[in-house]
Amino acid sequence: MSEWKAKRFWTAAEVTEAADGFAVALDGRPVKTPAKRDLHVPTRGLAEAVAAEWAAQGEVINPLEMPFTRTANAAIDKVANQQAEVADMLAAYGDSDLLCYRAEAPGALVSRQAAQWDPILDWAAAALGARLHPRVGVMHAPQDAEALDRLSAQVHALSVFQLTAFHDLVSLSGSLILGFAAAHDLKKIEALWDISRLDEIWQAKQWGQDDEAEAAAAVKFAGFGHAKRVFELADPSFSRSQ
Score class of each variant (00 low, 15 high):
R8G: 10
W10S: 13
G21W: 06
R37K: 13
V41E: 05
R44Y: 03
E48A: 12
E53D: 03
L64E: 13
L64Y: 10
E65P: 00
P67G: 04
A72Q: 09
A72E: 09
N73Q: 13
A80H: 07
N81M: 11
Q83S: 12
Y93M: 05
D95W: 03
S96R: 13
R102E: 04
E104W: 05
A108Y: 07
A108K: 11
S111H: 10
Q113E: 15
A115S: 14
W123V: 10
A124C: 08
G129I: 06
A130I: 13
L132V: 08
G137S: 06
M139D: 12
H140I: 01
Q143N: 07
D144Y: 01
D149P: 00
L151M: 09
S152R: 15
Q154K: 15
H156L: 09
V160W: 11
L186Y: 08
K187P: 00
K187V: 00
K188P: 06
I195T: 14
I195Y: 02
S196R: 02
Q206G: 10
E212C: 00
E212G: 04
E212S: 12
E214M: 11
A215Y: 04
V219G: 01
F221P: 01
G223Q: 06
F224I: 01
F224V: 03
G225A: 15
R229N: 14
S237W: 07
S239E: 09
R240C: 07
Q242P: 00
